[in-house]
Amino acid sequence: MKIIDWYILKRYLATFFVMLLMFIPIGIVIDVAEKINKILDKKVPFVKVAAYYGDFTIYFANLLFPIFLFLSIIWFTSKLASNTEIVAILSSGISFTRFLRPYIIGASIISVLALLMGMFFYPAASKGFNDFRYTYLSSKEVRKTTEVYKKISETETVYVSSFSYTTNSGYNFKLEKSKVNKDKKEDKELDYIINANSIKWNPKDSTYTLSGYKKRTIGKMEDKLESESSKTFKFNFKPDDLTPTIYAAETMTPQELNEFIDGETKRGSGNLNAYLVVKYKKWSIPVSAFILTTIAVAVSSMKRRGGMGVNLAIGIALAFIYIFFDKIFGTLAEKSSMPPLLAVWIPNIAFGILAIYLLRNARR
């Protein structure tokens, strides 16, 4: 590498990490000011508060990664442009593509760090951050699910309109049991259906009490019906199967996430989009470092009448648009039929096209 490469690369990395060190303490101060009353009221031990803000640092840095990257590159590249250093570099015969090389090397380093953080550090930090928030700071229930439809075995499927992990109870329970057709092994016939107005988990003996119990057994000539006001059963599923934590996907390592998705897929479970979105984001975020770097250089490498302020305004706007795209398409993938892979990569595809366009204009 030449002197100019080291010069730009050092400023790239130094500005990025200084930006992190500047904004993370600000985020912590704001968070402390907002939550200090609840922390004092609930007398949360200092050790847990300190651990929470350690997790908060990683969580916050990962969440605002695009903004930090954009601002740091635009900041020091705008200074290079205002000091006519870029003009001098290009006038010496170095092409704009060659000028980009140290930026791409810097983006590679940041990309590897983002990948390692997303794979190994972020899951644990996310668990600590969310556990603390829901345990001490939030009035919301962390494990309450609605409209659960889950296949618990090859022949059994359960449905419950809502289930609360706190009260160990749910409403509008339904279990469908099938049997394999002896003549056609691939076909399954409905054996019986169990309905109940409510279901309650009994942790002492690992049983469930069904209120408003009704069972319909399918017969060849006629069905058999039975009903009771209350009946206790031992099913082969646990409350954890009905109520995963709402942030469970974020807390899994890649191996745990893949094993969970494979297991649920084999069981025929639906609604895995939230887990697939997290899985694909672990790879899309590192790639975004290259796209965002290219856009930031293209935007800030020219002198503008408004100076650095205009470049920073453009950078902040683009960074927030990127985060908006990322959040909106991620939510669409979780709540609709949009393919998670496409939803996760749409922001990178859209901003990749923008990067190519801006880069071509910058070369001119």
Rank of each mutant, 00 (worst) to 15 (best):
G219D: 13
R304W: 02
F237S: 09
V299M: 08
A274C: 01
G212P: 01
S300G: 04
L242N: 11
S206G: 02
N202I: 13
Y208W: 15
G212L: 04
V297C: 11
A249R: 09
Y275W: 09
D205W: 01
I291N: 00
Y275C: 05
G219K: 10
D223N: 15
L190P: 11
S211N: 11
E226I: 08
T251Y: 01
G307C: 01
Y247W: 15
G219M: 09
R305S: 10
V277E: 09
S269V: 15
V278F: 02
L292F: 00
G263C: 09
T294M: 13
N236F: 05
K234C: 00
S198G: 04
D240A: 12
D183I: 07
I314E: 04
T243V: 15
N311W: 01
L190H: 12
S211R: 08
K204Q: 15
A274K: 15
I285M: 10
Q255G: 11
L225V: 10
K204L: 10
S211V: 05
P244L: 11
Y208V: 03
T245Y: 08
E186C: 05
I193T: 11
K303Q: 13
K215H: 03
R216A: 08
N273W: 00
S284I: 00
T232Y: 01
R216P: 00
V310I: 15
E259D: 15
L225R: 14
Y247A: 09
L190D: 14
K185L: 13
M221K: 14
Y275S: 07
E228W: 02
K266G: 04
Y280I: 11
A196K: 03
L210Q: 01
G263M: 01
D240L: 06
N197R: 10
T245E: 14
E264S: 11
D187E: 15
G268M: 10
A313N: 02
L242D: 06
A289K: 06
M308A: 06
S269R: 12
G268S: 10
E256Y: 08
E186D: 15
N181Q: 11
G212A: 06
Y208H: 11
M308W: 05
A296K: 06
I246P: 00
I314Y: 12
L210K: 08
Y280C: 08
N258T: 13
N271Y: 12
K231V: 03
T253I: 04
